[in-house]
């Protein structure tokens, strides 16, 4: 059976109040970028171990252990495949391990960023990175409407099930045909919502002037400075260690 409630929950993950979440979004983005860059400095094992350890304070600050665990679990198969492929082509256990840790490092960096950064902040970041308003705004609107549309989907499916509709019956073609009672109301409702939204935007003078003003201003606090310095130190150490430790040769399989 379908699991509509589970579907909705995925979109309902809330950003909790943590020391990390309170940081300036730019700081969070710089930290994220740093820890994506760090494992890429060199393919050597010490660098990978270092970038893992250096992220521990961030995991604690963002209380993202659960998200990290979940993300790693989700990519387990990929990780295993990577080890096997690397080992088969290089026969170097150390190298394969380094490649895996590099991937793990990057997964952790993303998990921390996604746990501690609200969608609205990501929208603001995009604006700051000079992404056009139309795009950043579409992003925010999409996030705003995902839970609404997810609720619609639940209501549509339960409405049809209550009319004796069974989704999982018959062969493939039959199944595709069976999606019609779900898809059509979904599309029509989404269009209607979109239309009313456009009306509301018009009413609120959206796009009336070239330069909108901005209500939200992010300030840099002490925590931001500390973590920015931390990022600089980590990257510097990474560069030093990276040039001192022996490099692996370029090999057919890397990540």
């Amino acid at each position: 059976m379908l699991d509509p409630m589970g579907m909705v929950e995925i979109f309902r993950t809330q950003v909790g109040e943590t020391p990390y979440s309170r940081l300036n979004p730019s700081t969070k983005f710089i930290l994220f970028a740093s820890f994506i860059a760090l494992p890429l400095i060199s393919a050597s094992l010490p660098i990978q171990i270092f970038s893992l350890i250096a992220q521990v304070p961030l995991i604690i600050l963002s209380r993202s252990e659960r998200r990290v665990k979940r993300s790693l679990k989700a990519s387990l198969l990929f990780i295993v495949v990577l080890v096997v492929l690397n080992y088969l082509t290089t026969h170097s256990l150390e190298f394969s391990l380094a490649m895996v840790l590099r991937l793990v490092s990057m997964i952790i960096a993303s998990a921390i960023f996604m746990t501690g950064t609200s969608p609205a902040e990501i929208g603001d970041l995009l604006t700051k990175l000079k992404v056009p308003l139309q795009i950043t705004f579409s992003f925010v609107i999409a996030l705003r409407f995902i839970p609404v549309l997810a609720d619609d989907v639940v209501m549509i499916i339960t409405s049809q099930v209550s009319r004796g509709y069974e989704l999982e019956r018959g062969g493939f073609l039959e199944k595709v045909k069976r999606l019609i009672p779900i898809l059509i109301p979904m599309i029509i409702i989404a269009i209607r919502r979109g239309h009313q939204l456009a009306e509301a935007l018009e009413t609120k003078a959206f796009g009336a002037i070239e330069r909108r003003s901005s209500y939200v201003v992010y300030e840099y606090g002490r925590g931001d400075w500390i973590l920015l310095i931390y990022a600089i130190i980590v990257i510097t150490i990474g560069l030093v260690v990276g040039t001192l430790t022996p490099q692996f040769q370029l090999l057919p399989f890397r990540c």
Partner: peptide, 15 residues
């Protein structure tokens, strides 16, 4: 066949 459930928003069912 025994218990019919009518939802709040009719638009959710029409196709």
């Amino acid at each position: 066949k025994k218990v019919g459930l009518v939802f709040q928003n009719p638009e959710h069912m029409f196709f």
